[in-house]
């Protein structure tokens, strides 16, 4: 009897450990749809997750950047504009900590879509990048067609930007964590240092997931 209790205790401890390791993957956000296919005469059901659709932009160096440019990268995305007087400076002060944590690592990128492409030309974005103190190809500031960027924001599950009466752009300050399969794996309030700390920790967790190492 005593042996049995001992055995149960060992099993319980082991399963508790296993449960803990299962926690080190991040959730997958967005809509999911079941897809049933027939493979070799058998029907199989697979889950298809929401992914970031194709987009076309240019970065602060004038290089063309599309969704393909981010293949094989985990990336963090946000929406901003250079003349933003409200939350953008806070967001990018916090994003700088993410940049500093990953600027020397391959496979992690940051992209900031401008929601004011009329003003934020390649030149303006380059000046902003220089003043912010970012260089290289870790953090891209992107200019695209306004309608496309606004439409794209919905795929990132953030509020669609709006212009108010004073011609200021209203948007929210979320940072989105996207995996190599272009699925949304985390949303963080970019104005709060604690949440940005969590983002840095989550990027490390995500990088260690088997799906991210294989990239498939």
């Amino acid at each position: 009897m005593k042996k049995l209790i001992g055995a149960i205790a060992i099993v319980l401890t082991y399963s508790a450990c296993k449960f803990n390791t299962a926690q080190t993957t991040l959730p997958i956000y967005g809509n999911r749809t079941p897809v049933t296919k027939t493979v070799d005469g058998k029907t199989e059901t697979d889950t298809v997750y929401q992914t970031i659709p194709a987009f076309k932009t240019v970065n602060q160096y004038g290089d063309s950047i599309t969704n393909k440019s981010l293949d094989n990268n985990i990336y963090v995305a946000d929406f901003f504009f250079t003349t933003c007087p409200s939350i953008c400076p806070v967001m990018h002060r916090n994003m700088l900590t993410v940049y500093d944590a990953f600027k020397s690592e391959k496979g992690v990128k940051i992209i900031s879509y401008s929601i004011d492409p009329k003003h934020d030309s390649v030149n303006v974005l380059k000046q902003y990048a220089d003043k912010l103190g970012i260089a290289g190809n870790t953090w891209w500031l992107l200019q695209g067609k306004k309608d496309e960027i606004y439409k794209l924001s919905e795929s990132y599950l953030v509020r669609r930007p709006e212009e108010d009466a004073k011609q200021l752009f209203i948007h929210d300050g979320y940072f989105l964590l996207i995996d190599k399969q272009k699925r949304i794996r985390g949303t963080y309030d970019g104005t709060l240092p604690d949440q940005v700390k969590q983002l840095i920790a989550d990027i490390k967790t995500l990088k260690a997931e088997p799906d991210q190492i294989s990239g498939k």
């Binding site: 007087p85 409200s86 939350i87 400076p89 806070v90 990018h92 002060r93 700088l96 902003y128 220089d130 003043k131 912010l132 103190g133």
Partner: peptide
């Protein structure tokens, strides 16, 4: 928002 909690500014922007 721009000048920071401790008046530290932001790089060469603010």
């Amino acid at each position: 928002n721009c000048h920071g909690k401790n008046g530290e500014g932001l790089s060469a922007l603010m």
